[in-house]
Structure formats: structure tokens, C-alpha cells
Nucleic acid binder design. Sequence first.
DNA 1: CATGAATGAGGGTTCATTCAT
DNA 2: CATGAATGAACCCTCATTCAT
Lengths: 203, 203, 203, 203
Amino acid sequence: MSQRPSHKPFRPRKTPAQSRSEATVASIVEAAAQVLETEGFEGFNTNAVARRAGVSIGSLYQYFPGKDALTVALIRRETGRFYEDASLALTRRSGKAALEYLVGAAVRQQLQRPMLARLLDIAEGRPALRGEVGGVEMEELVTTVVRRAAPKHERPEVAAGDLFAIVRGMVDAAGERGERDLEDLERRVRAAVFGYLSRSSAA
Amino acid sequence: MSQRPSHKPFRPRKTPAQSRSEATVASIVEAAAQVLETEGFEGFNTNAVARRAGVSIGSLYQYFPGKDALTVALIRRETGRFYEDASLALTRRSGKAALEYLVGAAVRQQLQRPMLARLLDIAEGRPALRGEVGGVEMEELVTTVVRRAAPKHERPEVAAGDLFAIVRGMVDAAGERGERDLEDLERRVRAAVFGYLSRSSAA
Amino acid sequence: MSQRPSHKPFRPRKTPAQSRSEATVASIVEAAAQVLETEGFEGFNTNAVARRAGVSIGSLYQYFPGKDALTVALIRRETGRFYEDASLALTRRSGKAALEYLVGAAVRQQLQRPMLARLLDIAEGRPALRGEVGGVEMEELVTTVVRRAAPKHERPEVAAGDLFAIVRGMVDAAGERGERDLEDLERRVRAAVFGYLSRSSAA
Amino acid sequence: MSQRPSHKPFRPRKTPAQSRSEATVASIVEAAAQVLETEGFEGFNTNAVARRAGVSIGSLYQYFPGKDALTVALIRRETGRFYEDASLALTRRSGKAALEYLVGAAVRQQLQRPMLARLLDIAEGRPALRGEVGGVEMEELVTTVVRRAAPKHERPEVAAGDLFAIVRGMVDAAGERGERDLEDLERRVRAAVFGYLSRSSAA
DNA sequence: CATGAATGAGGGTTCATTCAT
DNA sequence: CATGAATGAACCCTCATTCAT
């Protein structure tokens, strides 16, 4: 009835044990991604998502208690995919290689679906969603890598946050500009990352 | 009978000749800033802005042909203020000092009204508004400063874009986290900026 | 955020598959007719129509993409009804009888809901709606009948247009004056129609 | 404040004794005509009229108590001009010539500013305006001419009304179609008029 | 008297959400 | 469980009219 719900949990309503529901949920989330990509925030509404997913609006609400839950699910999916790739950084031998891998993962992720990544970065910042989307693991991962790459750094958490911001800023801007040269972008991001570390680190 | 919006310019509808309306326009723009700050995009609607400005909705539409025009005006106001400060960088003796001044200006601007700055950065990216908000001067300014600070750099425009993205990314994140330590933030942003330049520049 | 109407089709949004919605659509169109009749163009707004139809404004917009589409639907309904009756003219033996039947149909249609007929005649002329309401069949029908009633006429299409205008002018004026005497009106319209033909036709 | 005033006189607020006001009033009425012609009913609003007339909206309300008064003034102007021309019919020798003159006047009037004439015919029909625009003289004039052209007619008033309706219907339709051939149109209208009379008149 | 800034009721339209089937 | 018709609060915007200057 109203458009302003008060307070809802963002978790999916049911843990889909059956593979059928699982598939439905996945298709809805992917539809959300596509709508966001093609129509932007303007056209991102539940009816459009349901239509694109080929399910009824009722079904959508069967699996997601509200629009925000859908957004959160999408963010979680993308973050998860990114995290999965990024974690591989820990398998690298050197700290430098690990950090380089991290940068590469970020650039890859961004240039794959630039619009989507950018829009989700924005959505993530919405106060209503903050905290719901656990970026904690990501931060920890980056911190760990920073510790290995720059062991002398006095504030690795701060550095991790800064590096995250730097990389996000650069890749989002690249996406906005429509850059397609992955190699070049990665080189520049590395320059920023290692430049920052060399200057802010004690050693 | 029907609506016929078609193509709306973003320019104000009438240049306020009388001082009365000048004040009205200014109060509307400031109200827009406040609403955006306190309510976010969710609560940013023309009625709320008019109410906060203490004028009728009709008055708002006398000066702004639409909601977007209001947003644009706000962006322009903030960009203008920032640019005014940032231009002073050109008065610095050395290229390094100029770049440092630029960073300082960005940090100051950001930490003054963090939410506002962040939200406007987002709004600026909206396809409908791109190009309406001339960020060209800003880019040129940064490019000029980069040329002076790193004369050997092969692609000063690219570097300018990257620096812009780095600084924006860092200060927005800081604003989001609620950082208040201007000094510390500025130090870190400097590290990023000069670190990037030293690594990406030829010399 | 912004509105983006651009080019709206006048066709109903969804062809009602279920009988429930079929009834809803019909009730909305009839409500539109009643509002137009009782309140005139001044009071003809979507909210009033929805209220009179006993449905929510949202439902109205599920079936009609806009106010104009509703108007068009109403025009089509009335035109269709009229056309259905008028087509029977073709079953008459003589051309004269056919033309007389046509006149009778027009008079009947008009005096049944005089206000409605008159207002729709006006609405039909709105540039935005021209062409959307296919009056082509009507014109063709009249032309056919004219050809049979006055085979020697050099410009049957022109005559058809004129006769249409004459009849419409007379019945609308009668409706405006509140005439109720069907017989008398029909007699006069016949006089005009056959008078025109006898004078403009070659023979 | 509100858009729905209750009951206002339609007479101009002041009889402009001074020629300055007279000129202002005239310019406003002509502006109204132009706006109606170029923008249609959709764009016919007081602000637009004032702008086109080159006067302030305040001045417009100085001379016309409301929008309807302006419409009425415009209708009166056009009716007056038409009536002035049409009255010359009475100077004709024969009744037939008088009626022919009448038809000619109507056609001329229509084809001079077709949109305007058509729109005013519609506006004239608005219940709120009926009676305010004295079409009585016109009716009397036509009746007089009918009496002379068809002395044996039993109901000259009815015939006058019908002829009026016929002519209006035909010329409006012609205007709508964009007909420009004055001669041809006049010939056809004559056919309708005299055809009607010959069939409805006793003799 | 002229001006035009200001007003605000009203009207078109969207979309998150519910619920009967 | 799925469906999709129905709901209505909320939002954008216009324009007739007023009134302080």
C-alpha cells in the first residue's frame, strides 16, 4: 500500500532448500542486475525486475521481503564473487604479488559490468543499507594483504581503507568514462596503490 | 490536458532581477542542500525543499524548471565554491605547493559538509545530468597543476583524471566514515597523490 | 527520479485476460462517460473517473497509460456502437433508404446521450488525438452510401464529408438546445441531407 | 489562490474611456486570439496571454476579472466582427441574395482564422459561458433573412437555427481539414443551405 | 495604475506492496 | 506456492489568482 515501509529484515524470506526456489531466487537477482544496468536507478523497480525475471511480482515478494532486500542480495552476490576472486591474493608468494592480484581483481570486476559495479557502489552507501552488506571480510582481506606488503606500516587498517577508496574511485571513474583498456587501467591503479603505500608507510 | 515535458533546460527560468527573488533563489538552493544532507536522495523532493526554504512549491518552479535543474544548480554552487578555492593553487610558487594546495582544498571542501559533497558526487554521475554540470574547468585546472608538478609526465590529462578520482574516492570514503581529522586525511591524500605521480611519471 | 513520458501509445496497457479486469476496464470507460456528461471537460480528470468507477487511481493506470488513452477508449466505444448501428444501412434496399437509415442512426445516437456525444465530437478534434481515433471506416461507410444514393455525384468523398459535417452540426446543436423530439429532428436532418445532395449532385 | 473561482461577472472591469486602456484591452484580446490559435486550448492560459500581449499578468487582471472573462471578450470580438459583416446581408435586394451573402460571410470569417473560429465555437458551448455571449442578435438576423428568403416557411426560427448549425458544421470541418478553396466551400455550403430550405419549407 | 513574485489547490502519474483467487 | 489485479501514498508540476511594492 504505502511506499515507505518501516523496518524489515533484509534476509531472504526462506532459505531455499529446494533447487527450484534457488533457481528462482538467482534469476530474480540476475534480473535485478540487468535492470539496474540497462535502466539505472530510475528504472529499478520491483515490477520491472519481476517482469525481466519472468516471474510474477507476487513471487518476487515471496522470496524478498522488500525492494531493499533485493538490492542487498544483489550487492551480496557481487561482493561475494569479488571476494572469492580477491581471496586468491592470499595464495600469492610475496606481499607485493598479493596486492597486485587484489588490484587486478578489482579492475576485472569493474570492467566486466561497469555500470552495475558503479551503481552498486552507490547503493552500498545508502544509510538504510549500511551494515546490512558486510564489507567487513573485504576490509579484513585487504588489511591482511597490506600487512604482508608493507609490514612496517603503522596503521594497516587505515591504509586498507584508503587503498580500497583509491581503487574504487579509480575504477568507478574509468567505468564512467567508458574505458576499456584493462591493462592500462591496471597499471595506473598499481601506481596509485604502491605509490600510496611507499609514501604513507614508515619504511 | 496532457503533460508535455519533452526537453527541459536546466538553466534557471528567470534571472532574478530583483533582490527579493535573488534571495529566494539562494534560499531554495541552500534548502536543497540541507534536505539532501539530512534526508538523502530518498527524501529529496521538490515539496520538501520548498517547505524547508520557506517558500511555496510554486515559487520553486518559478526559478527552476524542474527537479533536476535544482540539483544542477546545487552542484554548480558547490563546484563553483570549490573551484574558487582550488584556483588559488595557481598562485603557488612551486608545482608541488600548487598540488598540495589542491589537495587541501578538496579535503576542506569535503569535510565541511561531508554528506552533501558525497551525494553531489553521486548526483553528478547521473546520465541525465552529465554534461550539464561543467566539470571541464576543474579538469583543466588539475591538468595545469599536474603539468607544473610533474612536467615529465607523458599523459597529464590522464593523470589529472586519475588524481581527481583518487582524491574524490578518498575524501568521500572519509566522509562516509565520519572522519573529522582534517590534518591526517590531508596527509594521506597527499601520500596517494604524490605517490601516484612519482610512480606513473616517467622521471 | 525524473519524469520521462515521451511517446505514449493510446492503446490499453494490458488486454484483460481475466473477466475480473474486463469488467474493471468497462466500468472505467463508462465512468469516464458519466464524468464527462455530468462535469464536462472541466471536471474530467483521472481521479474523478477512478472514483466514479469505484476503483483506485492505480487500477485506472494499469489499464490506460494516460488520460488521453482513456478519452480515446471512450471515443472508440461510442464510435464503435454508432458504427455498428450505422452499418445496417448497407442492408437497405435503396440508396435513399440507406441514407435515411444513416441519418436515423446519427439522430438516435445523439439524443441518447446528447452531452456525451457533443463532448466527444469536440475531443475527437484535439490534435493530439487526431488519427488515433480511426474515423476512416465511418467516412468510408458514408461514402458508400452516398454513391448508392447519388450515383451521379462527381465527388462522393467530398459529399460524404459534407454530409457528415451537416449531420453532426445539426444533431450537436439540437443536443445543446436540449431538443428531445426525435421525429422532428430526424425530419429536418433528412431535409438537409437530401437537399444538399440534390443541389450538389450533377443530376 | 485557487483555480476554481465561484461566480464572477464576465464584463470587463472598467469601461476604458481613455484610449490608452482601450489599446491595452485590445492588445490583450488579440494576444488571447493568437495564443489560442497557436497553442490551442492546452496552452491557453492567462500568463501566456499576458506575455504575448506584452503586459504584466497584473494588468491583465486589471482589465479582466478572470480567465473566462477574457474568453468571453474574445468571443464577443469575433462575433461582433462577424455580425457586422453579416448584417450587410440585409442590404441585399432579394432574400436569396441576402442568404447567399450570409453564407459568404460565414465562409470568409472561418477561412480567415480557421483555428480561432473553430476553437471559439467550442468555447462558446461551455455551459459556464452560455448566455454570456449573446448570440441572440445573430439568430435574429438569420431568422430575418430566412423569412425573406423563404416566406412560406412555417418555422423560420427553427430553420434559422438549423442553417446556423449546418453552416457552422461545414465550415468548422473544412477548417479542420485545412481546406483553403473558398469558392468551392462556399458553393457547397450554398447547396446545403438552399437544399435544406427547399425541402423543409412548405412551398 | 503597473508589475511580477508568490501562492497553493489540483491534477497526472508511478510504484512498493498486499491479497484474493 | 504462484499469480497479477488492486491499492493509494507520494511526487512532480501547472496555472489561476492575489497583493506587496
